[in-house]
Every structure is written in structure tokens, then in C-alpha cells.
Amino acid sequence: MPDTTITLDVFRFQPDGGGHARRSTDGPTFKAYRVPYHEHWVVLDALNWIKDELDGTLSYRWSCRMGVCGSCGMMVNGVPKLTCAAFLKDYYPGTIRVEPLTYFAVERDLIVDMDGFLGKLKSVKPWLIRENEKPVDEGEYLQSPNELASFKQYSMCINCLLCYAACPVVGAEEDFIGPAALAIAQRYNLDSRDQGAAERADALSADEGAWGCTFVGECSEVCPKNVDPAGAIQRVKVDNVKDWYRKLLMPWGHR
């Protein structure tokens, strides 16, 4: 081991029978690992070194290690981070505390339960909805660069869930659809090719939809891809209000 090392304090949890457990009730343990310090290493590199050299039982998710697959989100010193983009040098010489994403049930060690998120994602119908599908042999739907730009930012979500771990509303209200799924709903609502806003409206305007958001804005702060879910949610609310007024003033009209 090189002279220079850094210590990672890593959350450990192994269920007995493979069951689920909330961290708060099950008494987590932390285990300290001393790893070599390299300036170019990220926290994920250090975790891989631990698993390879010290302790094969440490479990976590990762794949691309280039910030696009969205697997390796964890709490690093209390802040949700992609561990493939969190450099040791930004923490050195201090100890780095690594925990699973907060507000999620922990399956094991640094692995959280994603089922809830996938259900929320599906609930906003994240696909292009058309009244009439154009046959493929008639070519593409035209879309100007400006029309593309109006939703492009919200299409950049990698589903890493850092925004859920940053959102106090997610912590208080388990059913809140949450920042990423709402941003993805807006991504389709704002797409000039889409005609499904009305179909998504019920999910978005429910109490656990956009109105659950109290505009803390932490989601946009931690987003590694600058998706700005907070901005998306505010636009959902504005659209909701417009719809509501339209219905009030023109009850005979369509939404």
C-alpha cells in the first residue's frame, strides 16, 4: 500500500433472511476501510479496491463509471453523489462516509430498493402518446431545433435517484411521485410530437403529484445532469392551474 491512504467509513447492512429493512430501525453498522489514496481515484474506485482486496462481501451497484448509467448513486458525506464522479481529492485527508441513498429502503449494504421509483415512473406514462400514429414509412415527425430544445433538458435524466435522496418531501411522503418522474412527465408533455398531456394530468395533479412539492429545490442542486427537476415541477403546477382556470371558465371545452 502506498504511503498515502484515506479512510472510507462504509455503511454495512446484511438482512438475515433476505427481507427488507429500514435503516433507522435496524441499527446500521459502519465499517472503516483504509485504502490507497490516488488523486485520480473516485469513491467508486476506492469501493472496488475494498471489494477486491479487503472484503468481498461489500455489495453495491455500478457499471459504466462515466456518469451515464446511473447505477452508483450513494450518500457521500451526507450528500447524494454519483460515486463514479466523486473524487477522493475533494475529501482528502478527511474520512469519507459512504451510505446508501437516503429515503430508500436498504436491501443490503449500499443497495437500495428501486421498485417504488419504477412504479412512479410508470405512473406518469413516460412514452410518446399520439391520437393517431403515423406509419413509419411516412417518415419522421417534424420537430424544429427550438421545439427540441424546449424539452431536451428534461430528457437528460439518468434515473440515478440522487434527487429523491435530496428531497425532504420524498422523506416525509412516501407516495410523492418525486422529482425525476415529474421531470420525465414534463419531458413528454413539452415534446411537440406528444399528445398525451391530458392522460398524464391525473397522476401529475394528484396530491402526491406535482402539488406535493414544496419547492425546496434540493433536487436541482444535486442533479448530476442539470435536468432541473424543480423547474420542471413548477411548470407542471403552472400548467395545472391553467387547466383548472380553463375548466372553470370554459366548462364545455376540452382540457
Binding site: W127, E140, Y141, L142, Q143, S144, P145, L148, D191, R193
Partner: peptide
């Protein structure tokens, strides 16, 4: 494209 892939566009929309 019909399934929503955000392909980059020309000014014409193609």
C-alpha cells in the same frame, strides 16, 4: 423517432 427519441434536428425539422 416515433417512440420519442430526441434526435438532433435540422432547421427544417427533419
Amino acid at each position: 423517432e416515433h417512440w420519442g427519441c430526441p434526435w438532433s434536428r435540422e432547421p427544417s425539422g427533419h
